[in-house]
Design a protein around this nucleic acid. Sequence first.
DNA 1: CGTTTCTGAGAAACCGCTTTCTCGCATGGA
DNA 2: TCCATGCGAGAAAGCGGTTTCTCAGAAACG
Lengths: 342, 342
Amino acid sequence: MGERNRATTIADVATHAGVSQASVSRVLNGKQSVDPEIVRRVQASIAALGYAPSATARSLVSGRNDTIAMVVPDLENPLFQGILKGLSLAAAADGYRVLVADTAERVDDEEPTAIEARQRCDALVLCAPRMPEQQLRRLVERVAPVVVVNRPLPDLDVPIVGVDYVRGIRDLVDHLVGLGHRHLAYVTGPETSASNAERLRGVDEALALHHGVRIDRIPGGSRPEDGDAVAGAVLDAQRAGVTAVIAFNDLVALGLMTRLRELGLDVPGDLSVAGFDDVPMARYATPRLTSMSVPRGEIGAQAWARLRTLIGGGPVEHTVLYRPRLEARESTAAPARAGVPA
Amino acid sequence: MGERNRATTIADVATHAGVSQASVSRVLNGKQSVDPEIVRRVQASIAALGYAPSATARSLVSGRNDTIAMVVPDLENPLFQGILKGLSLAAAADGYRVLVADTAERVDDEEPTAIEARQRCDALVLCAPRMPEQQLRRLVERVAPVVVVNRPLPDLDVPIVGVDYVRGIRDLVDHLVGLGHRHLAYVTGPETSASNAERLRGVDEALALHHGVRIDRIPGGSRPEDGDAVAGAVLDAQRAGVTAVIAFNDLVALGLMTRLRELGLDVPGDLSVAGFDDVPMARYATPRLTSMSVPRGEIGAQAWARLRTLIGGGPVEHTVLYRPRLEARESTAAPARAGVPA
DNA sequence: CGTTTCTGAGAAACCGCTTTCTCGCATGGA
DNA sequence: TCCATGCGAGAAAGCGGTTTCTCAGAAACG
């Protein structure tokens, strides 16, 4: 069979222009002065042949491929979507692309996926909220340069970008207590989730700060269905005196609110409900959901900023934690039968 | 100053094991029989040196890099998120990764972004709902293998995976008319959006099918804010006799519903509202939003299936259009003052 | 026992580009 | 006028793998 129709290479261009490959390369990269006449001829040949340099070959020699990877447990989660978007945009501004790897919540897949992704990218953004800490520590060393998103990792030389969930929960509790609530409930997230652990710490700290306040725990989850499923338990809690509920995140809060309404409960009349993350839909819920706003895009952008520094041989920059901002909306209000002032 | 600490290469392994590079390569790929003793030694050396083959070098020789790219106008849109997730999972199952490029709704960036992405990937999934058709046609030829998502492109040798918006709108109108509505309104999407054009065709076809039915058009958009902003106009329409509204998509419908409620309107009592796409939040809206379900993940998976065929040298497979499925929920109901039967 | 075939390991070419090295030539200084 | 410099273009050496090619030794056969 005839020779196959391979793509045109730099050698073809060189031949066509009657110059050396090196000259073509020089014209392409423009880092050395080249005879204007040669430049002209080369450019003409490139245009004539429709030549496009091979990114792979370039990568091989440069040792970089201007691509970073982001590993996430679930692309369907608005938090990660926002981070991905911010990361992608920020990286693109510097000429980098983002490879995305969804581990579909399979914790066991995270490590191999991360390693695999790292092999074909210059750096990594790792979102692994449920990976055991020891494993994560090992992994992080192996896949450097890497930045870890949204989980604390003390005493490790890795940049971290995250959210101060502890403080966020405290602030949220403050908001509710300020409204007059004294008996709250927290619908927990996934048991192994690092950010759930952080939130629980926030609950504990809040309890230490507010005497006479109770915060029950109701096992929940991270998705709207979980909120839906836990509505019965929440209703029981409300009958037992709980006047405000904090859900692990907005998805749970949204699912919960919808179900509660169907069960005949008025939010916030009978019960205040608050979420966390301030997903885009929160402000369009009925009632508009009170939530703790988290700068999703900014987290992605900062992750890139740190990665860029690392790639450039810079130091591991300091951990940055964003403090969630209260978005007080309609789903929280003073308890109907205002408790006895403390 | 000293020699820098480069990664170990296949040559290092060969030396360490006292065999040739070729043998190491053979052991790695296992496509030829090799002396068991050599296999053992090579594997020992690989382990001892912690060797990992360079994906880039492999790509250079193989001409593939097992990565595809997906170009989307907005990663924050639940539709694209779902498609990306489905694509990513399906591709991963075949050992492919996905590079994602968000053009941030800048139509002018789509072509260069696609070309650039294609240069470093084996194939492309293109979501460009607003790119002018002529430009898209040119682009598609240039970046093949490619599959186009969610827009018709007649007479072109390109696999297309999409949604039958025309039929979807018709079915949705059928639903509303079946409930007794005679005077509807459609809140349009972005003017240049191909899928909005499809929906409008659906509106026209529905009108042709249902005598005595009116469908007004109200300029809208594609985001919740647009729904919010258009609420006044919708309210006017309602006062003018409109009893049901179809929004371009769920995001608009959600924003609209929330605002309408604040304006004192009861949905569906005073006005039925329906969306499109059935985003995850639709079923958790208040009232739960009637929508046309679109198999987001499946679209992504099918896009991959077609791409895989193309990559493997197979034919351009037939266009596949998914017919949206009605998810009748609480936001649509019979009009309060049932119209005179036609 | 000699010759042919087969097997498998090593040498070398190659993938497409960048970068160093070499060298001819034009320029500037003495 | 001659030699030291500088500049720019081409040749060639990698980058790190895979794959073809070559060839030695073993196995098979007459």
